[in-house]
Design a protein around this nucleic acid. Sequence first.
DNA 1: TTTACTGTACCGTCTGGACGGTAATGTCAA
DNA 2: TTGACATTACCGTCCAGACGGTACAGTAAA
Lengths: 196, 196
Amino acid sequence: MDVSTKPRPAAPARPSARERILAAAGDIAHEVGPANMSLDAVAARAGVSKGGLLYHFPAKAQLLEALIVDHLRHFEQELGDHRNEKGGLANILRSYLDVSMVDCARKAPPASGVLAAIVQHPEMMAPITRFKRQMLDRLKADAGEESTALILFLAMEGMRSMKLFNADILSAEETGRAVEALCDLIDSTRRPANPA
Amino acid sequence: MDVSTKPRPAAPARPSARERILAAAGDIAHEVGPANMSLDAVAARAGVSKGGLLYHFPAKAQLLEALIVDHLRHFEQELGDHRNEKGGLANILRSYLDVSMVDCARKAPPASGVLAAIVQHPEMMAPITRFKRQMLDRLKADAGEESTALILFLAMEGMRSMKLFNADILSAEETGRAVEALCDLIDSTRRPANPA
DNA sequence: TTTACTGTACCGTCTGGACGGTAATGTCAA
DNA sequence: TTGACATTACCGTCCAGACGGTACAGTAAA
């Protein structure tokens, strides 16, 4: 009953302004289109003044870059978590597939933020391209056959792009069957677990 | 020697203003980023005054829409041509694969125009989504196994998205091997040619 | 006369971002 | 203990420039 235990009456344990801004940027980009994301709108959505926003991100480009960095780090994090859960036994192909699909099942906003960054500053695609190239190399290293890694990678890029554009083309059933087929592909070309 | 045979001294058989504008839009979108495509820049690149541009496309949204319609019609056209070349014998899966890959091998600008449209007016994604859904249905109808159609579709979406973002992730060799693998997949699950 | 533009001038709106506050919270010497 | 200053984390306003779009007078070919 005593409200005084919570010094701040509203918003218990509210995320930091920075996090709120990043999340708001994704939301706004998703709502008005990635090309039309204005700082005013982001600030308002984040519950921050424009001055406050510019304190955390002195230029729009820096906000956009943060969106990308965040996204990449988040994916890498989830990939690591997934592999640890499986005790490091699962091969990367499967982890990559699972994490990508979980990512795609999420709400669109975060991806829209990344899209906003890319279309406003095409050069920001570079770190993403690098990241994906490394990802592909990791897949190739662990795949029994190169073609398996390539097809899996391409299929996941396809999934991701459909999510990025909010294009719900595949039904849930089709998505499930596609994943199943990719699993079969991975397993059928799996190389001998350990040469020892 | 007589220049008077060509009434216009410069640019022999120059494409129509409309076509030039559409092409210029793609170029500009590619150069400055799909979000930063301004009408002034497009008009200048197309060698048309701003008034001239607005004569053909009274609003920016109409230019963007034309970019999408053009792109879709162009793809459909190429698909038809490809099938006719093969005397209608090639199954759609192969035609779709070939045409998609040719499309991806082209210079990026046209795709950037489409991207510009989508990110500025997300609702313009709808016709593209519809088109792709129909494409997928056609693939499914002709595939021996649904999973083949799904994987091929996803992989091509992946290819297309990498092109869209100018991300040259796969080497030419990898691309070739991926296509080969997809061909094998199509052939290995081909259903009996004709039940008659 | 119509079509297909050119060229210029202009308007209102939006946007990024610069800037000058300010309140709260340290930090530290006297 | 206190006053002086520094730092952090913002707020709110203002402005120059860019952009989409309008208006309109002119022109050259069909």
